[in-house]
């Protein structure tokens, strides 16, 4: 079928948003632009904003950004395609990202990613048939002391195993409430994108959810306060140690 073959020919201009959607997004865009001395700085948050409307960055969304900011669509496209958080095709409500950078990979991230692919029947950057879960592998997410780490809609799921990760995606697909180890109860990818556009999460309890620092963040403090026994178990070179416990 010839229509399957992309010749890279220029496309017709993208259709615009319906008037009511455009009016609503224009108001949000004004709030974003007002944060910056120069309007072009609003482009990254605005791409998050159009992603919150449609779940991915569409040609319509990019044309909207260009129009509002006085840029060409080429300028907007160049930016949208540079950053990995902007999705370029329709995707699921929940983006499940398994860290497979070296430390998490070694600690089990590779195994988790492989088992999730098999369990969900999808490959990297693919979505389950029910439209719920998009699986991808991600780079280091600054939580190495909680390895292996899985991010769902950019909330932290720390110290994962293949079993915990499989149960979590099952719960997501079944519509059960899923709570991260650090972060707020999951909202959809679109709702997350709106927070990323700079609009605070208005859900009651979202800011304080899961409390203060995670357990690994506190180990040094607890040692310094004498709240954890001073342990000497295994020397770094593996010599046997006579001193256990205190």
């Amino acid at each position: 079928m010839t229509e399957q073959i992309s010749l890279g020919m220029p496309q017709l201009p993208a259709p615009g948003y319906p008037a009511d959607v455009r009016a609503r997004l224009e108001e949000d865009a004004r709030a974003i632009v007002a944060r910056y001395p120069d309007s072009r700085s609003a482009l990254l948050p605005m791409l998050h904003l159009v992603q919150s409307e449609e779940g991915h960055v569409t040609r319509t969304g990019m044309a909207f950004c260009a129009d509002v900011l006085g840029l060409t669509t080429a300028e907007v496209t160049a930016v949208a395609t540079f950053y990995t958080m902007y999705r370029r095709k329709p995707s699921g409500d929940y983006q499940v990202g398994v860290c497979t950078n070296t430390l998490c990979a070694v600690m089990g991230g590779d195994a988790i990613f492989e088992e999730l692919k098999e369990h969900l029947g999808v490959g990297n950057n693919e979505t389950t048939e029910d439209g719920k879960v998009t699986l991808e592998h991600i780079e280091c997410n600054a939580a190495c002391d909680f390895a292996p780490v899985v991010m769902v809609n950019w909330e932290f799921f720390d110290n994962q195993t293949p079993e915990s990760a499989k149960k979590m995606v099952d719960d997501l697909r079944a519509g059960r409430t899923v709570e991260p180890t650090r972060g707020a109860p999951l909202c959809t990818f679109k709702e997350t994108a709106r927070i990323l556009a700079g609009f605070p999460d208005e859900r009651p309890g979202a800011v304080e959810a899961t409390g203060g620092a995670g357990p690994a963040s506190l180990v040094g403090l607890r040692l310094a306060k004498g709240e954890q026994p001073h342990r000497r178990i295994v020397h770094p070179r593996g010599e046997t140690s006579g001193q256990e416990g205190e």
Binding site: D145, V219, R231, R232, I233, V234
Partner: peptide
């Protein structure tokens, strides 16, 4: 044995950090 954050004066050694925190995994 105990991954996490350890706030200390600059110049501490990895041996000291491991010694106080339980070393490598058993």
């Amino acid at each position: 044995a105990s991954p996490g954050q350890y706030e200390a004066p600059l110049g501490i050694t990895l041996r000291q950090l491991l010694d106080m925190s339980g070393g490598m995994r058993p």
